[in-house]
């Protein structure tokens, strides 16, 4: 078993809407990410996936809980060097490659931003060499360095986004729907690239996505989110073959598969949260099988156990 790289404990991220109301975007979420693995995060729009990613890389002051990275405190008040080390070691790749690339900067400067911030190069030559090396890694040529974002296709822009994230040699990369905006024919190119880089550089991924079949393919373990909470967490194959939480089941039943004959018979079932009675018997994450966790109360836990027996 490899080491825990990132530990998230009881993470809460609330947003104030006005003086009276707030959104519990992430509400008491805990999970570990192991070194070298891909941890998938799925769930419907608004369930809190992006907020988890952004809270981990310290874009927000978290409302509650604790994050540790490589065994060291990574949330709350930190010293300047500690903050810089986290910024270098955790990077994020976004859904819309264009939105995060400054249109007036050329590719060299966009990719080198991490080098400049963290002073990773002593000379201009060293900086250029680092940029060329990472461009080659993501399948772009050094000739591309002088060009501007609008001169690239969507798939190429996402490669630039990846190069920019990897330039600081991070350990953890948070991929927030990195392929959703890309064309089907380009999506697999980018996924293959992410997989290749993971192997070569020993990267760990937190992979956020809507497309459940892609998440299954790319992830080692998957957490399913619903309204700010993780409701189920298991190995990818285990989750797909034996989903237990009614929300996970509903989500799986909604995925269309490219097989007309089975599609014409597929029955979808809806999730009704009112089926849970949490008034006295309180829910929490419980391990139903080795490494397979479900958010449930004691009574439900017993029922799940009978079901899988």
């Amino acid at each position: 078993m490899s080491n825990v790289l990132l530990k998230v404990e009881h993470l809460k991220q609330y947003f104030k809407l006005d003086r009276k109301s707030k959104v519990k975007a992430v509400d008491d979420v805990s999970f570990d990410i192991y070194e070298g693995e891909t941890f998938g995060l799925v769930g419907e729009s608004g369930s809190g996936k992006t907020t988890i990613g952004r809270s981990i890389i310290r874009l927000y002051d978290i409302t509650g809980g604790n994050v540790t990275f490589e065994g060291k405190q990574a949330s709350g008040k930190l010293k300047k060097e500690e903050r810089a080390s986290i910024a270098r070691n955790m990077q994020m790749i976004f859904q819309d490659p264009m939105a995060c690339l400054n249109p007036r900067m050329n590719i060299r400067d966009i990719v080198a931003e991490g080098i400049d911030i963290h002073k990773l190069a002593k000379t201009k030559e060293e900086r250029d060499e680092m940029v060329y090396a990472i461009l080659a890694k993501v399948g772009l040529a050094r000739e591309h360095a002088g060009r501007y974002p609008h001169e690239f296709s969507g798939g190429q822009r996402q490669r630039i986004g990846i190069a920019r994230a990897l330039i600081t040699n991070p350990k953890l990369v948070i991929c927030d729907e990195p392929i959703s905006a890309l064309d089907v024919s380009i999506q697999s190119q980018v996924v293959n690239l992410l997989k290749k880089l993971q192997k070569e550089l020993g990267l760990t991924y937190l992979f956020i996505a809507h497309d459940l079949s892609m998440v299954r393919y790319i992830s080692d373990r998957i957490a399913v989110m619903h309204k700010g909470k993780i409701v189920e967490l298991a190995d990818a194959e285990e989750l797909y073959n034996n989903p237990l939480h009614p929300y996970t089941r509903s989500l799986m039943s909604a995925i269309p598969t490219p097989d007309p004959k089975s599609e014409k018979q597929r029955a979808r079932f809806a999730y009704d949260p009112s089926q849970h009675d949490y008034t006295t018997d309180e829910p929490k994450m419980r391990e139903i099988r080795p490494k397979h966790f479900i958010y449930c109360n004691e009574k439900e836990f017993q029922a799940y156990q009978t079901e899988i027996a």
Partner: peptide
């Protein structure tokens, strides 16, 4: 290139 039935560890088919 659809990942739906793709075995893990095998590269996805990608249109070049």
């Amino acid at each position: 290139s659809i990942p739906a039935f793709q075995a893990k560890g095998v590269e996805l088919y990608a249109i070049p």
